[in-house]
Design a protein around this nucleic acid. Structure first.
Length: 426
RNA sequence: GGACAGGUGGCCGAGUGGUUGAAGGCGCACGCCUGGAAAGCGUGUAAACGGCUCAAACCGUUUCGAGGGUUCGAAUCCCUCCCUGUCCGCCA
């Protein structure tokens, strides 16, 4: 969440910053400021009352010990106790409303990012060349079905549309990608591998920002009030919830390979062919914790780590910096890595690399100490897909296809997949 | 799922209604001692919120798993929930 003190100290600047993201936030900001004022007023009154009460209570103790009559004093304290109870109740109401509002407010966008909506996203760089074919390249669902790697009708039968079954070399490809990416990030980029729970509680989802606002995007297990993770970002970032890290702990990076579950409510009919948008997919995720002053550099490094995956897999991609209006709720700055998919003829987002500044750290209460006795400060959190599987598979199949329907396997993947070419068996 | 035992500061651990934010120990920081180190000695070691500040100091409030209750007053008594351990049941 954003720092309410920043809002209080610089209302105009804060408001302007949030409006870059969403014009309709003006009201929330005003409501928040009014409630904050009321909270501090009420707090002042109730605390003064409590200070009096505490002093008088000591008086009672002293009097009782000395054998003096204290009935009058106790009667008066009983009355002021009632007043405290009323004010405390009011304070609780104000604070829970304040909480509700501030949890619904997105992060401040970073200074340098473009204004506007998705249309204003800025192309930062491209890598590789989209392949040219002397035949009409097929979409991945044709290729994968012919190669007996993918069974979409079976997925639909088992769980519904948007669920895929990988089989044979398709399933093996999933395992190969997981091994390849995890090895790269742990061995060459210094990440610590985590195998987290795939179900998390509300506190975890509130920490990273999915709750309370985006509950309808999640699959929930009602009876236990748990949710299937939409990304490993949730369990892995929350690993340090309510902790104070030592200076030596930063920066620190974790990598996790997990399935991700997304209801994609409201996304029906959009990009839904084949594997482009599915309800369950695998992803290797990078999560980093850093000091505030290092987070921009860390963001660049981590984006590079995600890019390294695509480069080794020889997948052409472009890096896009999202505009303020297109940047996700918790993120201050996001780079999307979009891979070229020759069969469907479009760029597909395969990784999203974001810095959350102190937004998630505040929600999840993740802090660090610069010096042994210094007062704790919030860390900065970052994460990047490193990378999502379905769109990687789409790119691999569609870009490396041959006229006979076979697919070349990039060198980096051969040791993991065991073959250098996928060809129809028939 | 059932029974029992527990959840106290960075860690261990005392504390069953009145200066207990919390004894004692460990750890950590600083100082003394030492040629240097260890040992020893001394001092200091939680956080959040609010007030006042440029800031700190300072003052106030809150916090002993979470939430509620009893009381003039709760770490301590009562209720609900969560978590951990042990045993039993079930089970990959």
């Amino acid at each position: 969440m954003i720092d309410i003190k920043r809002l209080r100290q610089d209302p105009e600047g804060s408001r302007a910053s949030l409006l870059r993201r969403d014009r309709s936030l003006a009201q929330s900001v005003d409501a928040l400021l009014a409630l904050d004022r009321e909270r501090r007023e009420t707090l002042g009154r109730v605390e003064a009352l409590k200070a009096e009460r505490n002093a008088a209570t000591e008086e009672v103790a002293r009097g009782k010990r000395a054998g003096e009559p204290v009935d009058d004093l106790m009667a008066r304290l009983r009355a002021s106790g009632e007043e405290v109870k009323v004010l405390d109740g009011r304070l609780r109401e104000v604070e829970s409303e304040l909480d509700r509002l501030v949890l619904a407010l997105p992060n401040f966008p970073a200074e340098g990012i473009p204004d506007g909506d998705a249309g204003a996203n800025r192309l930062v760089r491209t890598w590789g060349e989209p392949p040219v074919f002397d035949f009409l390249p097929q979409p991945h669902w044709e290729l994968a079905t012919a190669l007996d790697m993918l069974d979409l009708p079976a997925g639909a039968r088992l769980a519904g549309s948007g669920f895929a079954v990988f089989r044979g070399r398709g399933a093996r490809l999933i395992r190969a990608l997981a091994g390849f990416m995890l090895d790269l990030h742990t061995r060459e980029h210094g990440y610590v591998e985590i195998a987290p729970p795939y179900l998390v509680n509300r506190a975890a989802l509130t920490g990273t920002g999915q709750l309370p606002k985006f509950e309808e995007d999640l699959y929930g297990c009602g009876a236990d009030d748990l949710f299937l993770i939409p990304t490993a970002e949730v369990p892995v970032t929350n690993l340090h919830r309510d902790e104070i890290l030592e200076p030596a702990d930063l920066p620190r990076g974790y990598v996790a390979y997990t399935p991700c579950f997304r209801r994609e409510a409201g996304a029906h009919g959009k990009d839904t062919r084949g594997l482009i948008r599915v309800h369950q997919f695998d992803k290797v995720e990078l999560v980093r914790f850093s000091r505030p002053e290092d987070s921009d550099a860390e963001h660049q490094r981590m984006t590079g780590h995600a890019e390294a995956v695509l480069q080794r897999l020889e997948i052409p991609y472009r890096v896009v910096e999202l505009a303020a209006g297109d940047t996700g709720f918790a993120s201050a700055r996001t780079f999307d890595l979009e891979v070229w998919a020759a069969g469907v003829g479009t760029w597909l987002e395969a990784s999203s690399s974001s810095t959350f500044t102190d937004f998630q750290a505040r929600r999840a209460n993740i802090r660090f100490r610069r010096e042994p006795r210094a007062r704790p400060e919030f860390v900065h959190t970052l994460n990047a897909s490193g990378v999502a599987f379905p769109r990687t598979i789409i790119a691999l199949l569609e870009n490396n296809q041959a006229a006979d329907g076979s697919v070349r396997v990039p060198k980096a993947l051969v040791p993991y997949l065991g073959v250098d070419r996928l060809a129809p068996t028939a």
